[in-house]
Design a protein around this nucleic acid. Structure first.
Lengths: 342, 342
DNA sequence: CTGAAAGCGCTTACAG
DNA sequence: CTGAAAGCGCTTACAG
């Protein structure tokens, strides 16, 4: 037989109310009784039934997180930090991994997290079709916060990173090294992050008095970067530096140049974005822009919990700063800023 | 006010029992009533309270999955597939991400998933300190299955991949290309997978009448592979092929050779393990051994659900086969088996 | 500081 | 095929 709070109460010689109080760390329990209850719990190896607690309390104690892929250092980092932050506050993390493709059949039916009220709130990570999500969540009155959302004007609580600033800083870094022939390989227009990074590139160039040297669209992956860089090698006036919209593209570019017998950063400076796990491990170690996944996670959790507890009324919006990480893949056009051990 | 099953019942003009029946797809409901209930549910935007259901049913409908990192294509793939498989069976996935380090303070206190009985069962992925886990889970009578476990003799339900076979096949592939100077960069002894892959290498070499040409221990990461390969370059009699215990090591090796102006696979054939996401995207595309993450996930879920439902009594054990994926990083010693478009 | 009682929102036998 | 009643295991006012 499964043991319940009654068994504990009987064993400890108190009422279930008292047991409940020590379970919830209520201060109004005589120390003596508290000890007896603790003892009984241990002896019986008792664990409170979470369903009963949830039902009685009107809260589930679980927060949902929806995302499309785990194959990304940024998401991975956020999930981990959210997990930790939640644990600290006594919450559980339930994951819902949606399909990667944005045009899937999933669009219609709602996320399974929304179907039963299993969660007290939801963190929506990088939503591609956020209008739907937001609408449904609002209709169902499920507290939520959007992280890294793609639409500019969502009336919802959001936490974002300043991708425009990231693009600006990345490009400025290249400029400060003396480059002027700076290309940008942009991510898909679909992503707000891609749009803003591109804007940062354009503005940084303008700031320095240059028109964009070369601007090309791409997917966020290694092969695209490789192919684009390959095409440059055939041409005459190729860039001396490139700001890639993410680290995967950057890696592809590096491989293409190396494949042609050229050298990074001597023949091309490369800067990526996101600081993926591999970026500090490859050769040359990649200069990149890191997003503060820990901060994003903490802000998201903090915000959501406030909303859940009713402390936060109106939509709040948090914007965090990215950070330039200078490593080995960028140097001055003549390759002389190289300070690496190779 | 939160709407409950009573509101639906009233609206539909039936009893809550009938509503409950249509909620649970009971066949014993007159079609007419079923429609009325469905209608009421939709009009009220009613969602059953999962806590109440769990309490009444004695099951939570959630399965826990514990792991240490998401930064791995294999784990990522498994989590995704588990998620899907669970969804199909009407279960939720709760994640518990433990610390990466095996010697952490975490060892003592139990996993937070175990503390309240929130889950009907648990999938333990690549447990490093599995004795503890297994003992605690058994004591608490929580159904569980071990996936990719590290100890040979666990009396528990497990699903594993045949890493010995993987090592054998990887090495045989290299042998069949004509190599004899085949090195193996092994993973940490701590991992059963590492031990078995190494054993596969040794046996495959013996099978072909060769002693192991070169055997070196490593961590599962890019830098280690890089450093090890670098050290070879200084020596005289270096291998013409290497079987790396995982793709990260393999990537490091490739980079080291390329960094020295050498070419893969012309100067060195490289085969990795795991088929990480990047492995098919880098240049040269990496020959590797893929683990059947989908199969592992499905078997694990199938097994666990059987245990949960009491269908499965004794410990069961499933062993799956890995698959050799031949791509561009391996060729014959003279580099002539090259059939790639570069 | 402690406990009796009601209630959280479902499901499950049991009758009919 | 349908419903009244009991029960799942807690927590929360309310008294004392």
């Amino acid at each position: 037989m499964k043991i319940s709070i009654f068994d504990v109460a009987k064993r400890a010689g108190v009422s279930v109310v008292t047991v409940s109080r020590v379970l919830n760390d209520s201060p109004t329990v005589r120390e003596n009784n508290r000890q007896k209850v603790r003892q009984a719990i241990k002896e019986l190896d008792y664990r409170p039934n979470s369903a009963a607690r949830s039902l009685a309390r009107g809260k589930t104690g679980v927060i949902g997180l929806t995302l499309t892929t785990l194959q990304d250092s940024l998401f991975d980092g956020i999930v981990k930090c959210v997990n930790d932050a939640l644990k600290e506050h006594g919450y559980f993390l339930a994951l819902s991994i949606g399909p990667d493709t944005s045009d899937s059949d999933w669009g219609e039916g709602s996320n399974f997290l929304y179907q039963e009220d299993r969660v007290d709130g939801i963190i929506v990570l990088s939503p591609l079709k956020e209008e739907n999500d937001v609408l449904e969540l609002k209709r169902k009155k499920i507290p939520f916060v959007l992280v890294d959302n793609q639409l500019e004007d969502m009336s919802a609580s959001v936490v974002n990173v300043d991708n425009y600033m990231g693009g600006l800083e990345a490009t400025r870094h290249l400029l400060s090294l003396g480059h002027t022939k700076i290309a940008h390989i942009a991510g898909p227009e679909l992503y707000r992050s891609a749009r803003e990074r591109k804007r940062g590139y354009i503005d940084a160039m303008a700031e320095a008095g240059h028109p964009p040297f070369l601007l090309v669209d791409s997917d966020f992956d290694i092969r695209s970067g490789f192919d684009i860089a390959k095409s440059w090698l055939a041409e005459g006036d190729r860039p001396t530096a490139v700001f890639a919209a993410d680290d995967f593209i950057a890696l592809g570019v590096i491989e293409a140049f190396r494949d042609a017998g050229l050298h990074v950063p001597r023949d091309l400076s490369v800067i990526g974005y996101d600081d993926q796990a591999f970026s500090s491990a490859i050769h040359p170690r990649l200069t990149t822009v890191r997003q503060p996944s820990e901060g994003m996670a903490q802000e998201a959790v903090k915000l959501l919990l406030k909303i859940v507890n009713g402390t936060q009324k109106r939509n709040a919006s948090v914007k965090l700063e990215p950070k330039l990480i200078v490593r080995e893949s960028t140097a001055s056009p003549d390759g002389r800023t190289l300070e690496i051990d190779r």
